[in-house]
Simulated scan of single mutants.
Amino acid sequence: MFKKVLIAEDADFMSSGIKVALENMQIPNVEYAQYCDEAFLKLKKAWLDNEPFDLLVSDLSFKDNIHEQRLESGEDLIAEAKKLQPTLKTVVFSVEDKPYRIQQLCNELAVNAYVWKSNHGQRELKKAVQSVFNGEFFITPQLAHALRDKEAFEVTDYDVFLLKHLAEGLDQKEISEALKNKDIKPSSVSSVEKRLKLLKENFNANNPTQLIAITKDFGLI
């Protein structure tokens, strides 16, 4: 089992049960950080001292701090942590359940597990830690659909921009102008048309109205 684990969580850690859950797994060294910058400093110090953490468990959202934070989210923290220590195992522990966000974290940041904070969150977290230790990927079963079939189609920020403006009632020419105003490329009408067509095909939508409805259900807009 892992020997040294860092928890990045802004809730009351001692009363959350997470620490107890991990200690019950015979993890001898479980440390805690309330903010992302604090967590990264702990990771960096441990790395420089040649006593690195084996696992980072992080929430995604953190309450505002009176002091300005360089790293504002768990996503920022995980990205920086992997630059510092590429072999570090990472687990997301969050209330976030939108497929788009889950896809981003699993595909772009290559997290080792995604655990949904629910009534069974602590139990799922223990399963996730064990799975990651065994070299396996883990995701809370209720969220596994986010990585399957059509939902696994890679949706980019560019796509979200198109969908949001489509939902606002803009036509393809107007969306093209909005892209040009933001200096986002490709911005031609034909590029917008091709991408929207591809989105409709991947989400099995027959028309723009249906595409908007489906992607809203998936949490994209």
Rank of each mutant, 00 (worst) to 15 (best):
S15K: 14
P208Q: 12
I175H: 02
E193F: 11
A178L: 08
E68Y: 04
N119C: 10
K82R: 10
K44W: 14
N24H: 11
I102V: 10
M14C: 10
D217V: 14
I214M: 03
M14S: 15
Q210E: 15
D159V: 03
N181I: 00
T209F: 10
E72N: 02
K4A: 04
D183P: 02
A11D: 13
S16Q: 06
L43I: 13
D97C: 08
Q69S: 06
P86Y: 10
N206P: 02
V91R: 12
V92P: 03
N134C: 12
E72Q: 06
S187T: 00
E108F: 12
A110C: 08
A11Q: 11
T215C: 13
H145M: 12
D76F: 01
E9L: 04
I184G: 01
L22H: 07
L60Y: 07
N50S: 15
S187K: 00
F133C: 11
I221H: 13
F203A: 07
A146T: 08
K180Q: 02
A21I: 12
F203S: 06
A144P: 06
N206F: 06
K126W: 04
V160E: 01
Y32S: 04
R123N: 10
K3F: 03
W47N: 12
A213S: 13
H165K: 08
A110L: 14
K127E: 14
D159P: 02
A113C: 12
Q122R: 11
G135Y: 08
I221Y: 06
S94R: 01
Y114R: 04
R148S: 15
E51D: 15
R70K: 05
L211V: 05
M25H: 09
L41M: 13
H67M: 03
Q85N: 15
H67C: 05
N65T: 00
A39F: 02
K126E: 11
D171F: 05
C106M: 09
I78M: 05
S16K: 06
D59E: 09
F218H: 09
S61Y: 07
T215W: 03
P52L: 14
V30D: 01
T215Y: 05
H145Q: 11
V20F: 14
F218V: 07
D217W: 06
S94N: 08
T87V: 15
A167W: 07
G135T: 13
L166T: 00
L179T: 00
I7E: 01
L77N: 00
V132H: 05
Q172E: 13
L71C: 01
Y100Q: 14
D217C: 07
K4Q: 09
Q85P: 05
E31M: 09
E23A: 08
Q34M: 13
S58K: 04
M25R: 08
K19E: 12
L199M: 12
I27G: 04
L170D: 04
K185W: 00
A79Q: 14
V111N: 04
K45I: 14
L43M: 06
V192F: 01
A33N: 03
L48I: 11
F138W: 07
L211S: 03
A128P: 07
